[in-house]
Design a protein around this nucleic acid. Structure first.
Lengths: 213, 213
DNA sequence: TATTGTGAAGCCTTTCACAGCA
DNA sequence: TGCTGTGAAAGGCTTCACAATA
C-alpha cells in the first residue's frame, strides 16, 4: 500500500491511455517508442509523458526511447494489473451481457467470474441464443456467498438506475473491495470501498460541448 | 462558437456529473439542491461546484440553493445538449447493439438514427431475436450517403480495433463533426473533427490502482 | 546525435474565507 | 440566518529548457 509518493490523479488516468497506446504499438510490431510518439498518440505533451513515468522510475534509454514491451510491463505493474482481478457483473441486460463478451477485459487481466440478475432464467435465454453462455447467470440472492467462494474483489453494476444503490449495498455487504457503477444513477458507499461512477453519456457530453463551443 | 471565456476542461467533465446528479435528484422529487449537496453526491468541494457554475452565470438563490429543474436546464444549455444530436453507430457487435438499446441516450437528447455493419444481415438476426430492431442495420458502404441524408453529426465507433481507424476515416469523409471511439485502439483524425477515444478498461484501471495503492 | 530525466518557471485549478444577498 | 458568488491565497500540474547519457 502507498507504494509510491503522491501521484497526480491525472497521471493515473494518462497511464491507462499510455498502456492502450503501447498495446496498439505492440500489435503493430513496434519495438521502441519515444516519448514524442506516445505523446502524439495520446494527445499530450512529450515532457508530460516523461514526467509521468519518472514518478515511478527510469524506464527509458537516452537517445533511444522506451522499449515497448518493458514499458507495458512497468505500467501494468504500477496500475496493479500485473495479476488477475476477479469480477462480478450484476444486472445482465444489454450492457451487462456485452461486458460478459468483451474480449478486451481478459487481455488486461480482468476476469469476469460471476454474473447476477434478478431473473437469471429469462437472461440465460438471451445470452445463450446470442452466443453460448460465457459464465453462468446466477440469482442475485446468491451474491454474497458466491463473491466469497470465488474470491471476487470487484463488482460491476449494470442494473437499471433504480436498483443501483441497492446492488451497491449488497456488494459492499459481500465484501468486494471496489465497485464500478455503469448505471446512470450515482451511488455512494462506505469510505473503505473504492468506487467509480462511470456515465456513458459523459463522453458524448464532453464531445458535444467542444463541438458547440 | 466560443460562447464562453476559457473554461477549464475539468469543469466540463464535472458539469456532466452535476447533470447526472440533478437528473437523479429530480427523479426523487427534490426541488432544490445546495452546492454542498451536489458536492457530496459528486465527491467534490462545494466551492468548486459554485465556481464551476459561476463561469456561466448566477444560477442560484442565496440562502436557498439551486432550483433543480432550472439548473438542469442551464447545464444542458452550456453543454450544448439543449437540442437533439443525431448519431450513427458503426459496428453492431455486442457493445454496438447495447448502445442501440440504451435508454439513457435519448433522455439526454442523443438520438441514434443509423446503425452500420459490414454484415448487416447476420446482425439483424441477433438484434431482432433479442428485442425487435430499434433502427435498421445498414451496410457500411452506404455510410456516406446516409450520414448526409439523415443529417448525422456524430459517429460512434464500436468495431473491433483493427477496423477502428478505417471507420474513423470513413466518418470523417462523410463529414461528421464529432467521433466517439469505443474500440480499444486509439484513432486519429484531422483537427477540424472533434474526437474522443473512450476506453472501457480505463475506469477499471483507475479503480484497481486505488485498490492496490 | 537523439532522446531521456528533471529543476525551475509559469500557469492553471482548487480551496479558503468572507462579503453579498434572499 | 443560510447559502451563493467571488477575490485572494494556496496548491498542484504542466511545460520549458537543458544537463545527462546511451
Amino acid at each position: 500500500m502507498a507504494k509510491y509518493p503522491k501521484i497526480p490523479e491525472a497521471t493515473i488516468r494518462r497511464l491507462s491511455n499510455y498502456l492502450k497506446a503501447l498495446l496498439d504499438l505492440e500489435s503493430k510490431q513496434e519495438k521502441v517508442a519515444s516519448s514524442a510518439l506516445i505523446a502524439t498518440i495520446c494527445n499530450v505533451n512529450a515532457a508530460q509523458v516523461r514526467k509521468d513515468f519518472a514518478y515511478f522510475g527510469e524506464f527509458g534509454i537516452r537517445g533511444m526511447g522506451y522499449n515497448v514491451k518493458e514499458l507495458k510491463f512497468h505500467i501494468k505493474e504500477i496500475l496493479g494489473i500485473n495479476r488477475i482481478w476477479r469480477i462480478a457483473v450484476v444486472g445482465i441486460g444489454n450492457l451487462g451481457s456485452s461486458l460478459l463478451m468483451y474480449k478486451d477485459f481478459l487481455k488486461q487481466n480482468y476476469k469476469i467470474v460471476a454474473a447476477f440478475d434478478i431473473d437469471p432464467v429469462k437472461v440465460i435465454g438471451h445470452i445463450s441464443e446470442q452466443m453460448g453462455k460465457p459464465v453462468e447467470i446466477l440469482h442475485i440472492d446468491n451474491l454474497k456467498e458466491v463473491v466469497k467462494a470465488r474470491n471476487i474483489e470487484i463488482g460491476i453494476i449494470t442494473t437499471p438506475p433504480q436498483e443501483a444503490q441497492k446492488v451497491a449495498n449488497l456488494l459492499v455487504d459481500a465484501n468486494v473491495k471496489g465497485i464500478l457503477n455503469f448505471s446512470p444513477s450515482p451511488v455512494r458507499v462506505a469510505e473503505h470501498v473504492k468506487l467509480r461512477n462511470v456515465f456513458f453519456t459523459a463522453a458524448l457530453d464532453h464531445l458535444v460541448y467542444y463541438m458547440s463551443n
